[in-house]
Design a protein around this nucleic acid. Sequence first.
DNA 1: TTGAAAGCGATACCAC
DNA 2: GTGGTATCGCTTTCAA
Lengths: 343, 343
Amino acid sequence: MGTKKTLPVTIRDVAQLAGVAPGTVSKVLNNAPHISEETKARVEEAVRKLNFRRNTIARSLKMSHTATLGLITDDLEGVFTMSMMRGVEAVASAQGFSVFLCNSYGDMAREKDHLQVLLDKQVDGIILLSGYKVHERGAPALDLGQVPTVYLYQYTRAVSASCIIPDDLGGGAVATRHLLELGRRRIGFLNGPPHYEATHRRLDGYRQELTTHGVAFDPALVRVGKWNEASGYQMAHELLALSDLPDALFCASDSLAVGALEALRERGVRVPEDIAVVGFDNRNFAKYQRPPLTTVALPLVEMGTKAGQLLIDAIHTGSPQQAELIEVECQLVVRQSCGAVGG
Amino acid sequence: MGTKKTLPVTIRDVAQLAGVAPGTVSKVLNNAPHISEETKARVEEAVRKLNFRRNTIARSLKMSHTATLGLITDDLEGVFTMSMMRGVEAVASAQGFSVFLCNSYGDMAREKDHLQVLLDKQVDGIILLSGYKVHERGAPALDLGQVPTVYLYQYTRAVSASCIIPDDLGGGAVATRHLLELGRRRIGFLNGPPHYEATHRRLDGYRQELTTHGVAFDPALVRVGKWNEASGYQMAHELLALSDLPDALFCASDSLAVGALEALRERGVRVPEDIAVVGFDNRNFAKYQRPPLTTVALPLVEMGTKAGQLLIDAIHTGSPQQAELIEVECQLVVRQSCGAVGG
DNA sequence: TTGAAAGCGATACCAC
DNA sequence: GTGGTATCGCTTTCAA
């Protein structure tokens, strides 16, 4: 009637039951060559009978790797963070890795602490995920030595690590092209604040595509604000006050687009007949707008999986880190706010 | 000129430098009693000089605990998940624990796999986080043995574990009371779908508070729909079609409230003058509504910290798991949609 | 093809 | 108070 504390079953137990040496069991477990079919079978049966599970800790101690990744994020509040994490988690667990989640709140001291813990825990690799501001990131808050590292949603040149960012320029271009191909020529551009990398690159894509199509860039058509709806609302009204009205609005975020949509509604301009609207980010509310918003999708999950895969590859090859800058394509999501579908 | 692979410095190295035995070093590190000030100082200096860090893996092997928690979540997409995770991460790292992040997608097979990995990695405790549907959860997908477990945002009776849920009933009551105290008597209730626990408990809170204040419950005033804006829009219109109009609308989610607000605007009814509106959840868009939405805050972060703290406490005490059901208070967030502030 | 034994690095018990 | 040493569970080299 006493409490029965189940003692862990070890490789020795298995060896004993199978009548072989512990080392042999280990080899079988690792699918090592030069093992007779017979002993292999005996070992496997013993494993099954005893319900044996290898002690990962002991294994890690001996092998000095842990099948574990560290993920440090800037903000666990950001609307984009979650999807990237989801991508990372997915590849990681599909390939037998676990991932530690750490929140640095954008504070270097905290980042350092977390990094120290991760190093102590002997993670095999580290992902540094953070908001995509305009100033590129510097080195990690702690010297990571040989531990493979990848930067996600930001880039750095301070350190030799792979960096994963969205192809904002391409995204800006594809949206603009869509509008151009639909016959729009005076495309207003509602932009976000200048301290974001995305702001500049989306604008670049817009300008680039304009000149490709032989349309002159008109500075009067671009406005700079915040990322939110209120800002989109206000900037749209500004553009609507122009003597030479735009026939399309490219908004650098979906929130801006929602604000713009409201302003247009207020003014009684029809979307997309009078003015076509396209957003950016593909937030989940985009499809619920009236009309459903055509937008450019930020490939968040894919960026996460890419980061995870790159890291795991680096871990497996063990070769020194490459300093690759990877831009993941931003796909256009066509809905009804530009008149290309159902309109 | 060869690559200098930095060999890890061990406790033996420290011992040697300090001129003491390894065991002594270990004691100093653990602040054990019965150590002379002098050797303590010598050891500490050696530690500093060599920049020694204890090997956590070896330590875990010996001590059979890892200062690590596992967090398995249902959906890494849910709007509420993130905040709870933030809470968990915060307490955990503040108390020296790291947390493994696992996504089960609500799939028991995946949950089982993750649980197995977590057990293999010898986490000290596990948090099961998932959507708060009406059917209580069963046991974990795998027998967790003695590993402390807490259920977050759901409850179970299948297993002896602490469960953390929001006090939806209290939340329903506090919102209703607020309306009642503001003099409203015909309070419409826009509810979510019946397969959520929250749906029932918020309604219960509403009814309970009504009777407390001697106001008769009128079934004609309650509507059941989905959680989203469209549903709120439609249900509000239904209530507006009543001959005996409501003077307030209690919406079981902020999204419902947003839809309701739109319907009211369409009908030209003034908020809060004609009809007061209160939401539930305190989503971040609530404060940007016009008028800013009074709502009941879901204490997500707090629930996360509570879960983490409870788990860590259970780990430290080592006593058998309690089967406590903890309801975390939902606070009323007063803004302007009820006329209590600035109106 | 298999067995024996030496560690990985830290801890804790038992002597002194 | 402090030093020696067995041990946690697994892997791997070296002999046989």
